[in-house]
Computed example of a mutant assay.
Amino acid sequence: MATRKIRNTLALALLGLLLEKPMHPYEMASTLRERSKDTSFKITTGTLYDTVEALARHGWIEPVETVREGNRPERTVYAHTELGREEFVRWLDELIREPVAEYPKFVAAVSYLGALGPERAADALEERARHLTERIDGTDTALHETTGAGMPRLFMIEAEYIAHVLRAELDWTRRTIAEIRDGSLPWPGNH
């Protein structure tokens, strides 16, 4: 299989937006933030414009018009090319079908949990559990607000997935804290 020219997942998000309608980069960023997609994709002005330029350079999107609203600067509106639509669908299909190793930092840290000692490890995990609970609550609130506003579930399905993953991590974290605290998780040097 040929190597994909663009691998930045923000490009995937932008291509997805352009399925709906042509947009200028500022509208793309606003729409992603409005839909809470900034929890799934890192969105900064610089990376967004760089990504738009890369998509255009590779022929996946193209400018279709320039617009000016009031005193605002001119904005270039982009749309998919046929190649861009094909690449988007191919890339999306590949990402959904094929799990890949993602190397999360937390997994790397957990592999050395023993270095903290039982008390500090349990304390650190308890703090993580608090943060996870806050993120779950925030995600649940965002999901409730968007579905209440009439946004189709399919537009927020990744937030639903993230909430499920966070709940699974929270369950594991709480169970591990309990095992550390009750001594059922053996600790090196504590025989």
Rank of each mutant, 00 (worst) to 15 (best):
E119S: 08
A115R: 07
A109G: 05
A108S: 14
A124R: 04
E134A: 00
R128W: 06
G138W: 07
A101D: 14
G138S: 08
A142K: 00
V107I: 15
A122L: 05
D140N: 07
I136C: 01
G148S: 07
A109L: 08
A142R: 02
A142P: 02
S111R: 10
A124W: 03
I136K: 01
P152F: 05
R120V: 15
R120N: 08
E102V: 12
M151P: 09
F155W: 02
I162D: 02
P152S: 14
S111I: 05
T133K: 03
H131I: 07
P104A: 11
A108Q: 11
D123E: 06
G117D: 02
L143P: 00
I136N: 06
P152N: 10
P104K: 11
E98Q: 05
T141R: 01
P99G: 08
A159L: 13
E127F: 00
V110Q: 03
R128C: 15
L125E: 00
I162V: 15
T141H: 06
F155L: 09
R97C: 11
V107R: 11
G138T: 06
L143T: 00
Y112I: 12
L113E: 09
Y103T: 11
Y103P: 07
L154C: 13
E98L: 11
L113K: 10
R97I: 10
T141Q: 05
T139E: 06
I162S: 08
L132D: 02
R153P: 06
E158Y: 15
Y112R: 11
L125A: 04
A159H: 15
D137H: 01
K105M: 08
F106Y: 05
E126R: 12
A121P: 04
Y161E: 11
E160L: 03
L143G: 00
A122Y: 10
E134S: 00
G114K: 07
R120S: 11
G148T: 09
L125C: 02
P99Y: 12
L125Q: 02
M151W: 09
A101Y: 02
Y112N: 13
L113F: 10
Y103A: 09
A159V: 10
M151C: 10
E158R: 06
A129K: 05
A149H: 09
R135C: 01
E145H: 02
V110S: 04
L113C: 11
A142N: 01
G114V: 15
R120M: 14
I157K: 13
R135K: 07
A159S: 15
I162T: 14
R97G: 12
K105Y: 02
A109Q: 14
A142L: 00
R128K: 15
P104L: 03
G114R: 10
L132Y: 04
A121R: 04
A124M: 13
R153D: 10
A124E: 09
V110T: 03
G138R: 04
A129C: 08
R128M: 12
R135G: 01
A121G: 14
